[in-house]
Amino acid sequence: MSEKSIISPENLVYEKTGVMTDKVLHYCPGCGHGTAHRILAEAIDELGIQGDTIGVAPVGCSVLAYYYFDVDMQEAAHGRAPAVATGIKRVMPEKYVFTYQGDGDLAAIGTAETIHACNRGENILVVFINNGIYGMTGGQMAPTTLPGMKSSTSPFGRDVSTMGNPLKITELVAQLPGTYFVTRQSVHVPANVRKAKRAIKKALEYQKLNRGTCFVEIVSNCPYGWKMTPVESNKWMEENMFPFYPLGDIKVPEK
């Protein structure tokens, strides 16, 4: 059998989901945002909820996320996505509502909105991309920047005695009675992408149960902000980010 014959519709096992538009992503080469977008879009596709999903984009690198998801979307002010999502869900309770936020948006300027949406148990999905840096504005220190980690506003490394400690907001929201499912994932190797997608899909399915906020953190890379190649950044992430932000479920629904 010639190889050519394999490329035919009946043999198709993987293609870009239709829930993503054909727009070329503006993200830097190797950035985890693209993969995180794709698995969220795939989960929406596989659940058949494209027409029932409303997303909220943040301010940060993923400010233009609404160009890539082929679902109805709103652009929130910096950090306000959980409040915007609350407004949507309260008037459209039958819809699936998600926010997609970076660490600066979710864990610095939007800390109040994040914690209170989670504490109220808003029936929304929060997808939180944690790459420990402000990417869009050019690599400044984030609330999740590791101790000693260099950024353009911690050029000699984050000194926790003056700059404060990195915030493990995912562990924090897991303590709140309003959260139903809290997990930390990554999307840098195939096995982890598959796991992260399962987590997102589960979180969307839980939304039907009206049991509270589902919170999926994705520890990700920032090759540009970290001044590394994509492959180096993924290795650095494994060696430095994962020990501080360990992967796995933090709060799972009680059986």
């Binding site: 409303i54 709103q74 306000r80 915007v84 609350t86 407004g87 309260r90 209170h116």
Partner: peptide, 18 residues
């Protein structure tokens, strides 16, 4: 009852956009 005036107006944004 929102957690702040900031949150409240952004909830208005979300609902109004629907």
């Amino acid at each position: 009852q929102a957690e702040s005036e900031v949150a409240a107006i952004n909830m208005v944004y979300g609902a109004a956009a629907c």
